[in-house]
């Protein structure tokens, strides 16, 4: 501001700052604390790891028991590895499908770009839960695809399409594809096309020009899209719950079950902390990309 306005500045910074400290930072610290708590019967179902004996002597009653359980029981490790694998494959498939889509939109005539982009964003606005539910009707044993395949005589037995790795992967790609397309589109649309002309003048084939110019220039978009798909996919709960089966355990569902079914809050917290540790690098990358996007657009 040209004229200093200390009051406005204080409100604009102070109000959201206070809110975010209370509802983002403090909750995170509490999760960290409770992951060291001992689980107990009662409300709340844990013994706080920081306590005061006789009301004033600070006391540490923490335990590493929840982490020991996570490390010791192969169920947790398997769920973590499953989640990483599912998310990585979903990320790659989103990139393979999303890159050509983003490219086609970015190179479409200008008046078409916004409507085409709108078509990518629109499903993101309609209920995620309902879109995942739609796949149940399509994939189940007497669902649309199997009915079609049986009717045309391509198969004689219904294919197992639901409650397996295939359906979970499909759900992840379907749900997170827009997160890949949007940052890719942003970098491809900003690209200086005269670079491609220069490459062509120097005798490069379109494919070589793509590899040497377009692809390297779109790397920031690829990184942002990859992080935006990977992070929520790792922690996903709804998709493995509705489309998955007994072999598709993911860590988000483990956390949910620890909390709601087992009522073991310390273990749920430890699972959350362990998930965050795995995701720190992609989370920082995604935050950086979001900031860049907001500051430059």
């Amino acid at each position: 501001m040209n004229a200093p306005d200390p009051m406005g500045r204080r409100v604009a910074i102070g109000l959201p700052y206070l809110w975010l400290v209370v509802f983002v930072l403090v909750p995170f610290l509490i999760v960290l604390t409770i992951s060291f708590a001992e689980s107990a019967l009662g409300i709340p179902p844990y013994i706080a790891p920081l306590g005061f004996a006789k009301g004033w002597i600070p006391q540490l009653r923490g335990t590493l028991g929840s982490y020991g359980l996570i490390l010791g029981d192969s169920l947790y490790l398997k769920a973590y590895l499953n989640s990483l694998r599912f998310a990585a494959v979903a990320m790659l498939l989103c990139l393979l499908l999303g890159y050509p889509m983003a490219y086609a939109i970015a190179r479409a005539p200008e008046r078409w770009r916004n409507p085409l982009l709108m078509l990518v964003i629109l499903p993101f606005w309609t209920s995620f839960l309902i879109r995942v539910y739609a796949w149940i009707g399509i994939l189940k044993t007497n669902g649309l695809i199997n009915n079609l395949l049986l009717w045309t005589g391509i198969v004689h037995e219904p294919l197992p399409l639901l409650n397996n790795e295939f359906s979970v992967e499909l759900g992840l790609v379907y749900s997170y594809l827009p997160f890949m397309i949007l940052p890719l589109y942003a970098t491809l649309e900003r690209m200086d096309l005269s670079l491609l002309e220069a490459a062509a003048d120097l005798g490069a084939t379109p494919f070589r020009a793509f590899l040497a110019v377009t692809l390297p220039l779109s790397l920031p978009g690829i990184a942002a899209g990859a992080a935006l798909v990977f992070i929520p996919a790792v922690g996903e709960f709804v998709i493995p719950d509705l489309l998955g089966g007994p072999d598709t355990l993911m860590i988000g569902k483990v956390l949910w079950d620890e909390f709601f079914t087992n009522r073991d809050w310390p273990v749920a917290s430890a699972v959350a902390v362990a998930m965050l540790v795995l995701l720190v690098a992609p989370i920082v990358l995604a935050q950086h990309a979001l900031r860049k996007g907001a500051e430059s657009s």
Partner: peptide, 16 residues
């Protein structure tokens, strides 16, 4: 803190 809720898995936000 502003961007954390955008990128955090929902189960973690909910639990915290």
């Amino acid at each position: 803190m502003v961007t954390a809720p955008l990128v955090m898995p929902e189960v973690i936000t909910g639990l915290s």
